[in-house]
């Protein structure tokens, strides 16, 4: 049973390994994807796009109160 499971994982690994190895244009595309994901999740998300309510409040009750204040604010 264990051997069979191991064989399946090995087949899956080889499937992806061969696929990635024989890529031509795909290598360039993966480079673009990785750079893009780095810029999005490491640079933009962390430094420019913090979740406002998650960052500034610790409980849902505080977040509700804040949004209710915003919704009912008068001049």
């Amino acid at each position: 049973m264990l051997l069979r499971v191991g064989h399946i994982f090995k087949s899956i690994f080889l499937f992806y390994y061969d696929g990635f190895r024989s890529m031509t244009i795909g290598k360039k595309l993966w480079t673009i994807i990785l750079i893009k994901l780095f810029i999005m999740f490491i640079v933009l998300k962390i430094f420019f796009f913090p979740d406002f309510l998650k960052t500034n409040f610790s409980t849902d009750s505080q977040r509700s109160d804040y949004v209710l204040d915003q919704l009912t604010k008068t001049k």
Binding site: M40, L44, K45, F48, F49, P50, D51, F52, L53, K54, V67
Partner: peptide, 8 residues
């Protein structure tokens, strides 16, 4: 991302 930051 924009939803969470600009449109909370």
């Amino acid at each position: 991302f924009e939803f969470g930051t600009n449109w909370s």
